[in-house]
Design a protein around this nucleic acid. Structure first.
Lengths: 73, 73
DNA sequence: ATGTGACTCCTAGTCCGTA
DNA sequence: GTACGGACTAGGAGTCACA
């Protein structure tokens, strides 16, 4: 599983857990709405500063957004 | 503290802990040698797939390379 | 409120060299 | 073995229109 998929899932999950829309998250992180959409669809390999900015809004560590789900074998 | 500095420190520490040179790490991760050097000097915001590839060689999670050091106030 | 294509712009990332 | 520079290419950053 590619890391950007891991990030995409974690981002979406964290966003929903906060009850935020893509629009609101985008607004608060000062990132374009459609770019958030792209990230959640695993279109890009985000750079670590974008990860960090989003993590800040979601009140978590950048490292948390990259955590892989427990092994599925 | 910028996330790329956090990454730079963690990367260097992990690399030295493994007893690898920048050259060897670069070779194994299939990344340019001079780019590793740049990353350890906080020149760039690496993309998450680079972080992930390096983490794989260093036998750790990508998220571990982005962990901020405990608060210093 | 979100997905997508078609853009432009800029930096991540490569490859050469030298010290 | 590492830092650093210059010149280059690939792909991420960011916007817009439309469904």
């Amino acid at each position: 599983m590619e890391i950007r998929e891991v990030f995409a899932r974690n981002l979406k999950a964290a966003r929903l857990a906060k009850g935020l829309s893509q629009e609101e998250l985008a607004f608060r992180a000062d990132i374009d709405r459609t770019y958030i959409s792209s990230l959640e669809r695993s279109v890009y390999n985000a750079s670590i500063d974008v990860v960090d900015r989003l993590a800040a809004i979601l009140e978590m560590e950048a490292s948390d957004l990259l955590k892989r789900p427990p092994e599925k074998k």
